[in-house]
Design a protein around this nucleic acid. Structure first.
Length: 213
DNA sequence: CCACAGATTTCCT
DNA sequence: GGAAATCTGTGGT
């Protein structure tokens, strides 16, 4: 039997707090994705916090645009953006409304539906790499801009939801600089991960790409 | 294991 | 025009 409490989504008040409180508490939580082919579930092992308009690393830093509109809305909703011309990334909007902060879901372990995830991530050599990185996570769970703005606190067979999960050993929760973030936000230690978990993505310092020849 | 080129949207200068 | 909250395939050690 599945405990009912385990399947109840996180309440909106969970997300309606400062993003630096919410981000580490999302570690261990379960992201549920209902696709046409069946459910996929993932245990979150790595996240990054983006602190709205005060954060030079955030998409909201320069104010509202068509892309980041959802970040300025109510907490507990999905902000999905398209980047580098190829990839999608998934965030949970946090903090008081209009603060435009969010948590990027960077990596996790597939718990249910690994067969479905492998079809989308056919090039992954090992299952631990199915969702090792934010764009891989979105690809594995078939998340794209059609899900931008989805309520993560909805019940039942919602396409996307976040459920509470067994909190990791507090001794294993680490934080450090955010991956790939340059500019004024580079030094903020707002990446959180479960130390030693094989699904956590490698840290890559920010490196501007060289111009194409 | 490592490094690098290439895929090409969105936003800003 | 150029950088960005990225990943993959190729080729080297």
């Amino acid at each position: 039997m599945i405990e009912t409490s385990d399947r109840t989504p996180l309440p909106r008040k969970f997300f309606d707090r400062p993003v630096l409180e919410v981000a580490p508490q999302l570690l261990g939580c379960t992201l549920v994705r209902h696709t046409a082919d069946g459910p996929i579930e993932l245990r979150i092992t790595e996240v990054e916090a983006y602190a709205g308009e005060i954060d030079p690393g955030s998409h909201a830093y320069r104010g509202r645009t068509a892309r980041n509109e959802v970040m300025f809305g109510p907490p507990g909703h999905a902000y999905v953006y398209f980047t580098y011309g190829m990839w999608h990334c998934l965030n949970a909007v946090c903090g008081p409304e209009d603060q435009a902060s969010g948590v990027l879901l960077r990596a996790g372990q597939i718990q249910v539906g690994a067969d479905l995830a492998r079809k989308r991530r056919f090039s992954a050599r090992h299952d631990k790499e199915l969702a090792k990185g934010p764009a891989r996570l979105a690809t594995a769970l078939d998340v794209d801009r059609a899900l931008n703005g989805t309520d993560l606190c909805a019940d039942g067979m919602a396409p996307l939801a976040l459920l509470p999960g067994p909190a990791p050993d507090p001794e294993l929760v680490r934080n450090g600089p955010r991956t790939g973030v340059g500019g004024g936000g580079a030094h903020q230690p707002w990446r959180y991960w479960i130390d030693g978990d094989p699904t956590v993505s490698p840290y890559r310092p920010h490196a501007p790409r060289r111009r194409a020849t």
